[in-house]
Every structure is written in C-alpha cells, then in structure tokens.
C-alpha cells in the first residue's frame, strides 16, 4: 500500500476562531497527494463543528476524536494514524504557505533525507516578537550527512520547535520516538532531542513555509511564562527525561561534552538570571544538583569553555573540584 506523500498532523483544542484558516491553507497546498490528520482533543467550543464541515468537503482531511488528554497525546494519535511518506506538524492557530508541502517534497527528492528544517514567518508583528525567534529562524541552506552533536546543539534552528520540521516516515518508524504525555511543557524539545541523534541526513532550507502565531493572549505558553519557578521546575523535569533517554541509548557517554554544555545553557543560566525568591532558587538548585549527581554530568566539566565553567561553579560549588 502506497501512502500519500505527506501527512500533516494538526492537534486541535478550542481553536474555533483559527481553525478554518489553518485548514484552508492545507487544502490550498499545491501538492495534492497529502493527508491532513486533525486530532480533536476534546474541544469544548465549536472547533469540532468546523472540523466536521471541512472533513465532509474534502476526503483528504481525516478527523480523529480524543477525550481531552493533552497536545502530546493528540500528536501521538496523529503519528499513529499517519500513513504518509513524510510527516509535518501544524498547530491549529498557525497556517502554511501554499507551496509548503511541495517544497518539502522537492527537498526530499534531492537525495537521502531524514529531517528537513525550514524557515517560518512570525505573526502578529505587534507586540514585537522576542529577539531570540530571529536567532532560531536564521537558517542557511546546507545538508548534513551523518549525525554529529553540532547539528543538534550548534544549529539554532534545530530546537525547540517541531512545526518547522518535516520527518520521514521511515525515520519515525525506525526511531519509535513518541511525545511524552506526562509533561505539560517542552514535549517538542524532548521529541527533538530523542529523534535527532537517530537521523542520518539533515536538510536545512531557508524558505519560509510556515506562519507561526507566536503571541496569543491567554495561551498556554503565555501563562507558563509568568510563573518562573513552576516553569523552571518543568525545565528540570524535561532535562531529566532527556538525560535518562540519552543514557539508555548510550549517547550520554558518546557526546558527554556537548550534552553537558547544553544542560548548562538550558538550566543553569536561567536559574542564575531570572527573577526568583531565595527559597525558590534553592529548591531549583537542589533539583539540578540531584540531576547532575545521578547521571554523573560532572564528568563533562572539562569539555566546557570558560563561560560555561563559570556558570557551573556558580551553580554547583562542589563540582568545581572535579
């Protein structure tokens, strides 16, 4: 059985005002041979009605219904249902350029490819998007054959978003990586950290194929940003999950230096810099020290540069003696 060229997976939860535009952009794709898997995660507004309407009009839209169980569960259900040769993720409040699927498919024909990373537009432009987005979407055209840590750690566009990437179904099948349904934040980062080392061929293209709604009043991400302590605790939990997976795959031994470097970037800097009460900071530092002890991350200390060593010493004074 030959699958469609591309499966687009859309998790849907209470997005009635954005969904139509999103689905329109999918149906307008210049590439016809795609399937659009819409996973309705138990919406309580009229999203389900809109979805129903579109599904009746075009058989390429495949609706799936779930009890409300989170975006990760929805994406996993989409992944299980996907039959395409490539898989793309699309959020229901965003939309695609008309040529997105065609461009991805063309790139996939250019040679053996496991993961394609493409550029994106940010909207709305007011309030002004955070500066670091510009850093993430600075993509220059290149290909990498064979995984090396710098693809994951030194290429800014590799993390933390999955929606400006396309994955070959073959890779997904081989890697068997799923979204963690128990963490409320950073499930896409975990997914990327787990799947990138298993891929071999990476293609980076600067074409902006995706329109990303970076700001939405009252969205999950906006709310998460307010409570620094809770957010950082979740960050530690995410790092813990990733480290456990990396250890089980043997990558922690293999890429220890770059990995510890990333952990320092991801956790230590924020704990030092952000606005926290002393009790909260102590609590977080305790968590981080526990993580480092458990996985012997101090062994990677020697590979750090001066800046990261300073951060490390500040966070884990005992570690300085390693």
């Amino acid at each position: 059985m030959l699958g469609p060229k591309i499966s687009v997976i859309i998790p849907i939860y209470n997005v009635e005002s954005y969904l139509a535009r999103c689905l329109d952009s999918c149906l307008k794709q210049t590439l016809y041979d795609i399937e659009i898997i819409c996973v309705d995660d138990g919406s309580t507004d009229r999203s389900a009605g809109v979805l129903e309407l579109y599904a009746q009009a075009d058989s390429r839209i495949r609706p799936i219904r779930l009890e409300n169980s989170g975006v990760s569960a929805a994406r996993n259900a989409g992944l299980r249902a996907a039959r395409g040769q490539w898989v793309m993720f699309l959020d229901a409040d965003d939309y695609l350029e008309d040529v997105a699927c065609e461009r991805v498919w063309r790139e996939a024909q250019e040679g053996p490819t496991d993961i394609i990373v493409f550029g994106a537009y940010l909207f709305p432009q007011a309030p002004e998007p955070d500066a670091w987005y510009g850093y993430v979407f600075r993509i220059y055209t290149h290909r990498v054959n064979g995984f090396e840590p710098k693809v994951l750690f030194d290429t800014p566009c590799a993390k933390p978003f999955i929606w400006h990437k396309a994955f070959s179904a073959e890779l997904l099948k081989r890697a068997q990586v799923w979204f963690d349904e128990h963490i409320g934040l950073g499930e896409d980062l975990t997914f990327l950290m787990e799947i990138f080392p298993q891929a071999q061929y990476f293609a980076f293209i600067p074409d902006q194929l995706y329109h990303y709604r970076w700001f939405r009043p009252n969205s999950a991400m906006q709310q998460a940003k307010r409570d620094n302590h809770a957010r950082l605790r979740k960050h530690v939990a995410v790092a813990e999950g990733i480290t456990r997976y990396w250890q089980s795959q043997g990558w922690l031994e293999k890429y220890k230096g770059p990995y510890v470097n990333w952990v320092v970037d991801f956790l230590f800097a924020d704990v030092q810099k952000l606005d926290l009460t002393d009790a909260e900071r102590e609590d977080l530092l305790g968590e981080i020290r526990k993580l480092c002890d458990e996985y012997h991350l101090a062994e990677g200390y020697r590979a750090l540069d001066a800046h990261h060593r300073r951060l490390w010493k500040k966070t884990i004074p005992r570690g300085a003696s390693v």
Binding site: L2, K5, T30, L31, D33, I34
Partner: peptide, 24 residues
Amino acid sequence: CPIASDVQASRVFCPLTDFTSPLE
C-alpha cells in the same frame, strides 16, 4: 507495485491541467 496512494485515487483528474505542482 501500487501506483497511487488512496489520496491520489480519490479523485478524477485531467493530467494536463489539474496538477498545481509541476513536480507532481
């Protein structure tokens, strides 16, 4: 050796005019 996905098989089309992507 199937020649089409079920998405492609779901429509009747004219090969000359109905493809919007030249690659396809």
